[in-house]
Computed example of a mutant assay.
Amino acid sequence: MDFEFLRPLDQQLFEEIVTAEAHNLGSQLLVHTQSSGIPDLENVQIAIVSVNENRLVEGYEDEFLNFNKIRRSFYSLFPGNWHLNIADLGSIEKGETVEDTYFALQSLVKELLKKNIIPVILGGSQDLIYAQYRAYDFVEQMVNLVNVDSRFDLGDAEKSISNKSYIGKIVVNKPYNLFNYSNVGYQTYYNSQEEIGLMERLFFDAFRLGEVSNNIRIVEPVMRDANLVGIDLNAVNASSINSSPNNSPNGFDGKEICALARYAGISDKVSSFGIYEYTSNYSETGNMLIAQMIWYFIEGVNYRSNENTLSAKKDFIKYQVPIEEEILVFFKSPRTGRWWIEIPFISNSNTKLKRHTLLPCNHEDYLEACNQVIPERWYKTKRKNEV
């Protein structure tokens, strides 16, 4: 892989890693250094990269983002019982323009996806998700995006892209690859009623912070159906991340945000993962929490069930539930106990949707259907299939 825009790891930090404790993550990662260059990615499953770009933050102030603090915290951790090879590819520096940075990130993510390597992106402004998403332009099916964020970030699609309007650009810009957008953890007072209404009209999914905090398992099916996941660090409450940039009293606590990262990792479909809105003002506590989020994501990847394969689906148990004029068809995995619901395939619809015929759900959806209540996500997905 020849990506001249990748900057190697800081030499001083690398020396700290190689002299660190023998069994921690720092001693086990493949690292991009000045002397050895980009590591061989032949048997690598996960690649970490940081992106020093934040020029489209609303109220932007010029700042060099130093991700070494996160790396130092991450490298000090011990791995779980993992069977994964992990590489640190270093950093993408700001291009001459923001579009240059987008192009570099998009090119890197696309190349990693082709190699079946999961990129873990540490970014400045969250509009970088746009480049993460555009890397899927070559993929043959529509994609699902999950965003853990207190805001929808739809913005005004007519205006220039920013860290508060990138979702609008994803929706309206060609090529149209987005099948579903799901927001996890929105807080109503940060979102206009117009945006809330638009989310409903587009049949997108939105889960309020309180709803998720009361029962975090409700987002597992949404994560299971995602292709790419982004986390806005401002979705974490200020006391948990102990950081001056984040002044929100409400948000996910440390345990919850790590659980969400693990759900993203354990999903068989998630092929890229980003953590955004980082600034260099994060405290040692904040950097350690981010490091633990990465750790939990990798932990999830290690325990994937690979139930997206045809051979695994042959073992699923089928349940049929008559409801109104429909017969809802559910499937349950005997191995993991996870549930899916079948979406009727529309023969003349976009051929990219063929792989969306099984929608992840939970046991409660099946029980509700038995009580003659149609699951909301089934209805929304069916409507999107018909459009």
Rank of each mutant, 00 (worst) to 15 (best):
N173E: 14
A264Q: 13
S248D: 13
N242C: 05
V51A: 03
Y263L: 00
L310D: 13
E220D: 07
R338T: 10
I17A: 13
L367I: 10
N85I: 14
K69V: 14
T381P: 11
V172E: 08
R335D: 02
I129F: 07
Y166S: 01
D2T: 04
E42L: 06
E93S: 10
F103K: 08
F67R: 05
V44C: 10
K164L: 00
D100M: 01
M288Q: 15
D100S: 14
V219D: 01
I323Y: 03
N85V: 05
R224H: 05
V171L: 11
N281H: 15
N24W: 11
K255H: 03
M288P: 08
S35I: 12
D137T: 05
G230I: 11
I46S: 11
K255A: 01
V139L: 15
D62L: 09
E53W: 03
K159T: 09
I298A: 13
Q34F: 05
D88W: 08
F14L: 09
G90D: 14
I216T: 06
P360R: 13
F74K: 12
R262V: 03
L198C: 13
K352W: 08
Q12E: 15
V51Q: 07
F345K: 04
P360E: 10
T351F: 13
A131M: 01
I170P: 05
F203V: 02
F331E: 11
V44L: 02
G26T: 05
P334W: 11
K314G: 03
R134Q: 06
G59T: 00
N54R: 12
N246S: 12
D232S: 09
N350V: 04
D156Q: 06
E194G: 00
F152D: 07
W378H: 07
K169S: 09
V109G: 08
Q12P: 01
R383Y: 11
F64V: 08
S333L: 10
W295S: 09
L289P: 09
K354S: 10
V301K: 14
D100C: 13
I257C: 13
G274Y: 03
A206M: 03
R134S: 00
S125H: 10
P8Q: 11
T357D: 06
N348D: 07
S280C: 11
L108V: 00
Y263R: 05
N234S: 14
S347L: 06
D127K: 10
N227G: 00
P8N: 07
E326T: 03
S27H: 13
I117M: 03
E61F: 06
G210S: 06
S244F: 01
E342R: 12
A131P: 01
V57P: 04
F316H: 13
L9A: 13
Y189A: 00
I216D: 09
L353N: 05
L310K: 15
Y366F: 10
V44Q: 08
Y319I: 02
G300M: 15
I290K: 14
Q320Y: 06
T357Y: 12
N308W: 07
I17N: 14
Y136Q: 03
F138Y: 09
V184H: 07
G286H: 10
S35Q: 00
Y303V: 04
T357F: 03
E140T: 05
T33Q: 07
A157S: 15
I275E: 04
N306W: 10
E376P: 02
V301F: 04
N371C: 12
D100V: 00
S243N: 12
M288D: 15
Y136L: 07
